[in-house]
């Protein structure tokens, strides 16, 4: 019985490790500047985790395999209450590894969360509502028009409550797809109309809760063109799983043209772009440097 259990533990360990290393399922390719750093930290952590996991399971399997009783009631186990030196050594080693890992893991976070977005970032307001994402662009004048919850009229497609009287609002566009330029820092301001949502684009390596009552800022820089699925990752009600949109990463010049358009044209162009860009990173796109 003991041997069978030992072997089973080993088999399960091998199976688990295989699932992680077979390469069929892994993180989607990254598209942002912090992506490589994220992936590196992820790999390091997974390797440490994997090694510790395998070592512990192999040790457990070995103990179970080796130290089974042989049915002879007379034989006795080793009488020992422990070993303080061993205890101190392994505590120190694990503490060192874990804390180092923990400190290393703060880098990307600090870069994204403790730094402000660079001056001159492209700004977009995100207004989430139950089961729909609205993206509010400032238009050609780069100033956001005034919004007011009292002006929200979903039937008239005024999802964000834009005040038409405001001069800054004249050229603002509101669509349900997020288009941002590649190679320029982007700053999103996240707001929610009703409950807590969460903006999640796997390729972006970024999740951020959209908390009602707060205007939370997030910033990143994209390095690859393409169209990517944008999901809600915080339970927001009945149709949470359908709260989907797209992130379209456009070359800077295309983006500049796009934001100069008035609302109606803007919307048409976005629809066209969704068709133009197949899902995923756009193959054969010009390098980031050329797009700047």
């Amino acid at each position: 019985m003991g041997r069978a259990l030992g072997v089973l533990i080993w088999l399960l360990t091998i199976g688990s490790v295989w699932l992680f290393v077979n390469g069929r399922w892994w993180l989607p390719p990254y598209i942002s500047e912090h992506g490589p750093a994220y992936d590196r930290q992820f790999m390091i952590t997974i390797i440490v985790v994997g090694l510790s996991f395998a070592a512990a399971q192999i040790g457990l399997g070995w103990a179970v395999w080796r130290y089974g009783a042989r049915g002879n009631r007379g034989e006795r186990a080793v009488y020992s209450h422990g070993n303080n030196r061993l205890e101190i050594i392994w505590t120190a080693i694990t503490a060192l590894i874990f804390i180092t890992l923990g400190l290393m893991g703060q880098r990307v976070w600090a870069q994204l969360h403790l730094n402000e977005a660079p001056a001159g970032s492209t700004k977009v307001h995100v207004v989430a509502q139950q089961f729909q994402w609205n993206f509010h662009y400032p238009g050609a004048d780069k100033n956001f028009g005034r919004t007011d919850p009292n002006l929200v009229k979903d039937a008239e497609l005024n999802f964000v409550g834009l005040d038409e009287q405001d001069a800054n609002a004249k050229d603002d566009q509101v669509v349900t797809t997020l288009a941002v330029p590649v190679g320029r820092p982007v700053e999103l301001t996240l707001e929610s109309k009703d409950v807590t949502h969460d903006l999640f684009v796997p390729e972006l390596r970024y999740k951020q809760d959209v908390v009602p009552g707060m205007a939370i800022k997030m910033h990143f820089t994209l390095t690859k063109e393409g169209r990517f699925e944008l999901a809600c990752a915080e339970l927001c009600g009945q149709l949470h799983y359908k709260m989907k949109s797209y992130l379209i990463a456009l070359p800077a010049n295309v983006y500049d043209e796009l934001v100069a358009m008035p609302q109606a044209q803007f919307q048409g162009r976005i629809t066209q772009l969704i068709k133009e860009y197949p899902l995923g990173i756009r193959q054969g796109a010009a390098t980031t440097a050329a797009l700047r």
Binding site: F42, V48, S52, A56, F98, M104
Partner: peptide
């Protein structure tokens, strides 16, 4: 009890991934 040890290791060790703020950016709520 042996199963507990095995599962505790398997489940607990991934806390090292989840506990890091940066990595949590992607795997949170997943």
């Amino acid at each position: 009890a042996i199963g507990f040890v095995s599962l505790f290791v398997a489940g607990g060790i991934t806390g090292l991934v989840l506990g890091q703020t940066s990595l949590d950016l992607f795997i949170h709520d997943g």
